[in-house]
């Protein structure tokens, strides 16, 4: 699912002011007619000699070719950095960038984390989604205003008006029913 983040970020209304919320720029329509892969680039930073990058090196030796075949639209970079901790950086087409330090991960954990990063929509997990609906097209009927659906003959009425003020009857009164019965019955 594709999440496109708008530029204007609104603050949360009640609590957690340190945690900015965001609005979707587009709706949840990725995958409805066509699917646009959300992952743009995956960067592996690791050390070729240090022990902390041991499982990352194992992963690269055995799994990286399968990963490249699985995500043909994403670019995969390998950046050897001497005596640095292993890090995976995922960049998505909506501009979101996720960094994950992989020092304590075993190879199996690494496989599962990278599977998450390749399949996710790229929604920032530390931000609150304020509204679950969005559209890119302008409304055809236009925004509501107080005169929408108002009967036009009321415009000619001089206010205050008896006709517009009178309560609407839900059922006929006893007097009206008597008059109706007399009208419909046979004359004697």
């Amino acid at each position: 699912m594709l999440w496109i983040i708008s530029e204007n970020r609104a603050e949360c209304s009640t609590m957690n002011h340190y945690k900015p919320g965001f609005f979707l720029k587009e709706g949840f329509n990725n995958g409805m007619l066509q699917h646009v892969p959300s992952l743009a680039r995956l960067t592996f930073k690791f050390c070729k000699s240090h022990g902390s990058s041991r499982f990352m090196r194992e992963y690269i030796e055995s799994e990286i070719m399968d990963l490249a075949r699985q995500c043909p639209t994403a670019v995969i970079y390998l950046k050897p950095r001497r005596h640095r901790d292993p890090v995976v950086v995922a960049e998505y087409i909506n501009g979101h960038k996720e960094e994950l330090r992989c020092n304590p991960f075993s190879k199996q954990e690494l496989i599962r984390w990278i599977n998450l990063m390749t399949t996710t929509s790229g929604r920032p997990s530390n931000q609150k989604l304020l509204k679950y609906s969005a559209t890119s097209s302008i409304s055809i009927q236009g925004p509501w205003n107080p005169w929408v659906y108002k009967p036009t003959e009321e415009n000619l009425e001089e206010l205050p008006s008896e006709r517009l003020s009178a309560a609407k009857a839900t059922y006929p009164t006893a007097t009206e029913r008597v008059l109706d019965m007399v009208k419909t019955s046979q004359p004697r």
């Binding site: 205050p160 517009l164 003020s165 009178a166 309560a167 009857a169």
Partner: peptide
């Protein structure tokens, strides 16, 4: 200013 009439709740 008046542009709107509120309907009464009960019949007079």
């Amino acid at each position: 200013n008046i542009t709107r009439q509120l309907r009464q709740l009960r019949k007079v």
